[in-house]
């Protein structure tokens, strides 16, 4: 087990390094970053100053070395536009993002879990059809459009909800942003829990549990549940893209000053230093989550432990 974890950590480390290299060269391959900074209002002196400050006057090899060592020290560099450390910008905007994504994620997971199991155990009933309907619609309608239509209906026409404002403490301001992220994450997970539960309910040991006369409640919550949760748990890593997309779109629609808006604004402003560090941070996040999923999976399922080292 220890060996398995060590190998995985090493692999993840190599992967981060690889992604860092790709990002560095992608930014430079597409054009000189200096072209991005240049603007007509800048004097030659200012331009040179920025160039030196960002270390862009050095050779590529030197730049690459500085970039890697800074990264290793956890220094993400400075924003070109705002002229302050990227880490500071993240510290400011991350709490706002977490305030909406964490509750949304927790609610979506709990809902997915209960609705998925309910649909599987009451197969082909009204409830199952309802869950399937939500899943089909949720996977076809674009989340950004649903959010805008929600503003139109709830804020403009009915006026039952305020237009979300992150500085207000009232819960009502959180309903729409949190709801939007739930819309992004719920349908896929719900569908997965349902089909995983159906698979498990079809197995021999569940039949045995039923034959020996266990009450249905025990069969489902004690025997089936644990096994039905393995598949959804291992795909949590694949929820990251959805969650990121959901957060960025939500923050954009509701003017929420979180990470999503920060990256998007940096993208429009061509602030490559910010986008570059966010990309690498995302890569680290992805690898850490995958590592944790792998390890927890190996704990649950002994076959994996010995097979895949």
């Amino acid at each position: 087990m220890t060996r398995f974890i060590i190998i995985r950590i090493l692999q993840a480390f190599v992967a981060v390094l690889g992604i860092a290299v790709i990002v560095f060269f992608l930014i430079r391959a597409a054009g000189d970053p200096l072209d991005l900074i240049k603007n007509p209002n800048m004097t030659q002196e200012q331009f040179e100053a920025v160039k030196t400050r960002l270390g862009l006057d050095k050779s590529y090899a030197e730049q690459f070395w500085i970039y890697l060592t800074d990264l290793a020290r956890g220094d993400l560099g400075d924003s070109i536009l705002k002229e302050k450390p990227v880490s500071e910008m993240i510290a400011q905007s991350l709490p706002n993002t977490l305030k909406i994504t964490v509750p949304a994620f927790v609610i979506a997971m709990i809902l997915a879990f209960f609705l998925g199991i309910m649909a599987a155990t009451r197969r082909d009933t009204f409830w199952d059809q309802g869950v399937k309907f939500i899943a089909v619609l949720g996977q076809a309608l674009p989340g950004f459009w649903v959010a805008i239509m929600a503003i139109l209906v709830f804020c403009v026409y009915w006026g039952v909800l305020p237009v979300p404002n992150p500085t207000k403490q009232s819960l009502a301001h959180y309903v729409l942003p949190v709801g939007t992220i739930i819309f992004f994450t719920l349908p896929g997970m719900m569908r997965l829990v349902r089909s995983s539960m159906l698979d498990v309910l079809d197995t021999e040991y569940i039949k045995l549990a039923r034959i020996k006369g266990l009450p249905e409640r025990m069969v489902i919550w004690k025997h089936a549940l644990r096994n039905a949760l393995i598949t959804p748990l291992t795909t949590i890593g694949m929820l990251i893209p959805t969650l990121v997309l959901g957060a960025v779109i939500t923050e954009q629609i509701f003017n929420w000053p979180g990470m999503g808006r920060m990256i998007l604004e940096s993208t429009f402003a061509k602030d490559f230093a910010v986008v570059q560090s966010i990309t690498i941070l995302t890569a680290i996040l992805v690898l850490v989550v995958n590592l944790l999923v792998d390890i927890s999976y190996a704990y649950v399922d002994p076959q994996i432990r010995y097979q895949r080292t």
Binding site: P241, V244, L264, T267, A283
Partner: peptide, 13 residues
């Protein structure tokens, strides 16, 4: 598990 959106932003930059 890598968000395509982040990559798209990197490319857009």
């Amino acid at each position: 598990s890598f968000p395509g959106l982040v990559l798209a932003m990197l490319l857009a930059v």
